[in-house]
Design a protein around this nucleic acid. Structure first.
Length: 198
DNA sequence: CCCTGATTCGC
DNA sequence: GCGAATCAGG
């Protein structure tokens, strides 16, 4: 693969959006994150927009435009661009306490009035998928918001307004934000969600 | 171990 | 110019 104009454009766009090099690489396909980073540097768009707060770049090394044949084997100063980390998945504010009930005794939870994430109502979801979810939620890692990573299932369980709230946390399915079971209920094939109007 | 970006250097 | 290898760090 080569860096065609549109590929570069996408690269710029995504990088500008704060996407990670690996994410960009996946999106582009045919390149590794190294390739992306290399290109980013060559394009000279290294530092990204910070939260506006600490936009001040450090003096760093002087340009030294002229070829300065001084390949000193000295380790780089290693700077800290202080990037904005990975965008945290927006979610309802977590309860003040972090305590996690050992046995969440799943009870019928009625939404606390806040807009909950896609908690598909029982009808309309394939029974098999639902059963699988209920089963898998017993094995859930029950992660807190901040424990979530790119490869942990981000399916929310429970009511954010109570202590009985956590994220699944099981290994995600390739490229998806959820584990296999939750992908099952999150992404209904259009064929399967034919209107069953009430 | 998973990940992040940065740099080097042979191609 | 390109990007794998490597580094430095979270």
């Amino acid at each position: 693969m080569s860096w065609t104009d549109d590929r570069v454009e996408l690269l710029k766009k995504m990088w500008g959006e704060g996407q990670s090099a690996s994410q960009i690489a996946k999106e582009l396909g045919g390149v590794t994150r190294n390739a992306v980073i290399g290109k980013v540097h060559r394009l000279g768009l290294s530092n990204r927009a910070t939260t506006g707060a600490k936009a001040a770049a450090e003096p760093k090394e002087k340009p030294a435009a002229a070829a300065k044949p001084a390949p000193k084997p000295k380790p780089q100063p290693k700077t800290e661009p202080a990037r904005p980390v990975t965008p945290a998945p927006a979610a309802a504010a977590a309860p003040a306490s972090d305590a996690r009930p050992m046995v969440p005794a799943r009870k019928q939870i009625i939404p606390a009035g806040q807009p909950l994430p896609p908690q598909p109502s029982a009808n309309e979801i394939s029974p098999e998928a639902l059963a699988k979810v209920n089963e898998v939620e017993k094995k859930a890692k029950k992660l807190s918001l901040m424990e979530l990573t790119e490869r942990t299932c981000k399916w929310p369980v429970g009511d954010p307004a109570t202590e009985d709230f956590w994220f699944c946390g099981l290994p995600v399915q390739q490229g998806k934000p959820y584990c296999e079971a939750h992908v099952g209920v999150a992404f209904q094939p259009m064929s399967a969600r034919r209107d069953r109007k009430r």
